[in-house]
Design a protein around this nucleic acid. Structure first.
Lengths: 187, 187
DNA sequence: CCTTTTATTTGACAATTATCAAATCAACCG
DNA sequence: CGGTTGATTTGATAATTGTCAAATAAAAGG
């Protein structure tokens, strides 16, 4: 709980009142390794926050699984298009380790945002950060070599190699498993 | 003006009062072909809306210009990171045709959003749309062939070929001019 | 209309990465 | 511990795209 509060306050300094309003809206789950938080074709109802553990967002592409995002401790994650457009997701979300996860439902969040200017601002700032992140990732995919992307990843998340199978990391980086293996052995 | 109002209302149905509050904050410019709306290293102060004309967002990458975005009539465009983080932009924005452009200043928009819940919501929805777009583009860059990306582009904007030089289109698609030329001649 | 400049196409070659196949390594279970 | 399964590495080859150089086409200015 504490890490969720910190994460929220870091995004926007909510008053105590607003904080007390939004906190009860979060639900909590302890899920096992491999548990699916979201299945393909479902409408994604939650923005998640992972307290401890790891999860991946992935989809099927011509028979293969493509990992689109990997979330480690203390990160928010969601299926953006499905959550905001209220359409069935082509993505699935799966725990890669036993995980402690919180989530806020779309209905609740929208009601809170409509009722409290502060929470609307919080949401706006979350979206701003997310958009900036998305832009950076796009830049990175388009203009950095896979080598560089890999280096960046392990600089930012050194533990990721030990916690997440290379197949997932490879497709997250937009390369094949074999290419990643060669990049790694060349260092 | 009318197209800007329509564009805003399509994003979020503002009350008349909110509309009358936000409209005066927009400035208007008629700019010539090649005019720079934003120069590299400047902090980007405006979200722009292009009534008529065309513009591109680009940056220098090892001596070459990379076009990151192309905006045709009735689209919003901005240097996302610079505008929201208030940091000097690595991007430039240039009119590709004589253009009629509106813009709202960061200071004004933030004051309005803080003062009016409705405008905060409008901004939040703009960011949501922008994030969805950014995700789609990322997907497209990472998992579609350049062939497919080109097809999509001309399906959505058939006129773009006649209005924008192929060099810009090529780098927008993330390929070289030569590769684009070959894709085009193969059809 | 001709000249100059810029935009686009074409060709040859090199570099990067994907694909397919097989080998090795590591982890887990009885 | 031995065996089975899944993860990772290595090898050989093919496909895609980038790079550099040159040719052609189109546009702009006098």
């Amino acid at each position: 709980m504490e890490s969720l509060v910190n994460a929220l306050l870091r995004i926007h300094p909510l008053t105590d009142k607003a904080l007390q309003t939004i906190l009860p809206a979060w639900q909590h789950w302890e899920v096992q390794k491999d548990h699916l938080l979201l299945r393909e074709h479902q409408v994604s109802d939650y923005i998640y926050f992972i307290h401890t553990g790891a999860a991946r967002i992935f989809y099927q592409k011509s028979g293969k699984e493509i990992t689109e995002w990997i979330a480690l401790d203390k990160q928010f994650f969601l299926s953006i298009t499905s959550f905001f457009e209220r359409t069935p997701s082509h993505l699935s979300i799966q725990a890669l380790e036993p995980a402690s996860v919180s989530g806020i439902h779309h209905n609740d969040l929208m009601k809170l945002a409509a009722g409290h200017h502060e929470i609307e601002t919080l949401l706006r700032k979350m979206l701003t950060l997310s958009l900036i992140l998305s832009q950076r990732r796009m830049d990175s995919i388009q203009f950095e070599t896979s080598q560089q992307r890999y280096e960046k990843l392990i600089t930012e998340y050194p533990e990721i190699i030990k916690r997440v199978p290379l197949t997932y990391i490879a497709s997250f980086l937009g390369i094949t498993l074999e290419t990643l293996s060669r990049i790694r052995s060349a260092r």
